[in-house]
Write a protein that binds this DNA or RNA. Structure first.
Lengths: 140, 140
DNA sequence: TCGTAAACGTTCGGAAGTCCAACGTTAGGT
DNA sequence: ACCTAACGTTGGACTTCCGAACGTTTACGA
């Protein structure tokens, strides 16, 4: 009855999501927080619009997530003097620490999710996923 | 910057979800409907609780989805004479047709999602996903 | 046999992620 | 100067996941 990979994908992803919620929830974070802090840590400060493009998070959702991060003191919004439409979003020192903390958690999630796969299999898996993502990110 | 596969997985799955909503929404259906109709078509009638176990859908969500399917005439709830707690859920003739229709759509979704992969790559991908799924379904 | 525990269907509600439509403000191009 | 586009924000919708609670019915153990 040929299980359709797209549905298996859904279920595996659901498992992954469950683990993410669990591991991150334990320290009061959620997926968006990690995505944002990581993007800021690795690619530097950016306007919200640019951040949205980088992380694939909708602008409307970004607002809320940034509010949470800002209230927690992980992130700072400062007006861009060169363009008064923009907020430049940057990490605070605490934010940098938080990014590292969440990155560790993310690796733990990964380890848990990919546990049954060998190193070369993980490479394969990551490669295939990456190609799928790129295809759908550009061509749609 | 070593993109973590678990996050790429999330995003690819989100893409898949988007396609599913789009393709199924075009005929007034959603993911749960397909999951349920397919399960009923391939594994036969069942009580709601059993159906929930088979499809991985929460009982609380199942109620609503079955209401929709029943109202559309795709599914029938009849009291189980052997156990008055149970409803036996079965497909109607129209439900069988609907299951086939949605199965075709599911294949289209699949084709769209896995478009950039060759046949042997899809095999690989499906195999890896299957192993992940089995691991998390049993061991947790 | 009686009482407790379990299963079943249902309702309610919340968290998280994804997505769209609209609005006022500000920049940029013509 | 005008029109278009980008930007940040708000509000809402939908799907999936998940838990709490409740009444009914069955099963089991004392």
């Amino acid at each position: 009855m040929e299980e359709l990979p797209s549905w298996v994908l859904s279920q595996v992803s659901a498992q992954g999501h469950r683990i993410i919620v669990e591991r991150f929830g334990a320290v009061g974070a959620r997926g968006y927080h990690y995505r944002l802090l990581r993007s800021l840590a690795t690619d530097g400060p950016a306007s919200q619009a640019a951040l949205g493009r980088r992380t694939g998070i909708y602008l409307s959702d970004l607002v809320g997530a940034l509010n949470e991060l800002e209230e927690a003191g992980y992130v700072r919004r400062s007006p861009d003097p060169a363009d008064r439409r923009r907020n430049v979003v940057g990490l605070t020192d605490r934010g940098r620490e938080r990014a590292e903390e969440l990155t560790e958690r993310a690796h733990a999630v990964q380890e848990e999710l990919l546990a049954p796969l060998s190193a070369p299999e993980r490479e394969q898996f990551a490669g295939l996923l990456q190609r799928l993502l790129e295809h759908h990110r550009s061509g749609g």
